[in-house]
């Protein structure tokens, strides 16, 4: 198949238009955070930095940001531990039920969030008799974050193979020494990439969070959702939305630089 120059240009043009359409809504949120109109009129009647300074001094938004950061960090650490253990088990061993375990890791993110949400809500309140709190959100987030760490670490383990580990064992190193000196250095960057993605995933999540967060302990997405329809809060919500875009995109860009297979970054 030989594409004519015209056809190539046509495909390039279509690609450009699609990318433009993908970015316009995000740009709009950024522009609106400076829009003097509270109803997001277009074109903006004027520009102002007032919403930004109001958002910075908004206690609710600041508390929500702090809650989100705490949940994200703890969930990421738990997911890093569990995801790495699973990746080591599934990439270095053949055993009965391996496919089942693989499915189990993917399930929390493959099933619609609302089902995971009501299931965990019921388990925490009905079975464990726990009050919904920052602890229950963190447990929920850890559960669906495992898969991002797992994907990244497992992809790296597949890529580097097990030869160096076998050589290390042949030379007399014990399992722990081999892990510390051979396996871990090889998977370190993939693990960090997975953790960055896991933090971004936790930071953005709203559906499962709605069902597992305690009253008065909003994460940042929950705060946005609860304040979106309050007319006097709407412009501040827009500023927080821009902050959310930035906080979720920066870890992704960092993760990109650490992981060679860029598409493996997708959940």
């Amino acid at each position: 198949m030989i594409l004519s120059k015209g056809a190539r240009r046509a495909f390039a043009a279509i690609t450009g238009v699609i990318l433009l359409l993908m970015y316009i809504p995000l740009m709009l949120v950024v522009v609106n955070s400076f829009n003097t109109s509270q109803a997001f009129e277009w074109p903006p009647p004027g520009f102002t930095g007032e919403w930004w300074s109001r958002a910075i001094h908004n206690d609710g938004a600041r508390e929500a940001l702090w809650t989100s950061v705490q949940v994200g960090i703890v969930a990421t650490v738990v997911a890093a531990l569990l995801g790495t253990l699973l990746a080591l088990a599934l990439s270095r061993y053949q055993f009965f039920g391996r496919t089942g375990v693989n499915l189990l890791v993917v399930l929390p993110i493959a099933l619609p969030g609302i089902i995971t949400g009501i299931a965990l809500n019921n388990a925490f309140r009905g079975i464990l008799d726990l009050r919904l709190s920052i602890l229950t959100v963190t447990i929920a987030h850890s559960t669906f974050c495992i898969v991002t760490v797992f994907n990244n670490v497992a992809a790296r383990l597949r890529q580097v193979g097990g030869n160096l580990e076998e050589a290390s064992a042949d030379l007399g190193a014990g399992v722990w020494t081999t892990f510390r000196l051979v396996t871990f250095p090889q998977l370190r960057t993939a693990l960090v990439a997975g953790m960055l993605l896991s933090f971004a995933l936790s930071f953005d999540e709203i559906v499962v969070t709605t069902f597992t967060a305690g009253a008065g302990q909003d994460t940042l997405p929950l705060w946005i959702f609860n304040n979106m329809f309050r007319p006097n809060q709407a412009p501040i919500v827009n500023v927080v939305a821009v902050v959310m875009i930035l906080i979720s995109i920066i870890p992704i860009w960092l993760a990109q630089r650490l992981s060679d297979d860029v598409t493996a970054a997708a959940p």
């Binding site: 995000l26 709009l28 109109s37 009129e41 277009w42 959702f225 875009i245």
Partner: peptide, 27 residues
């Protein structure tokens, strides 16, 4: 990277963007 970046931008923010995009006086 250009395709992945909007994938990771917050889901809620993207829905919110369309809320204002589709509004009566919106873009």
């Amino acid at each position: 990277i250009a395709v992945l970046t909007p994938l990771w931008a917050s889901y809620l923010v993207k829905a919110f963007a369309w809320l204002s995009l589709l509004s009566g006086k919106g873009l």
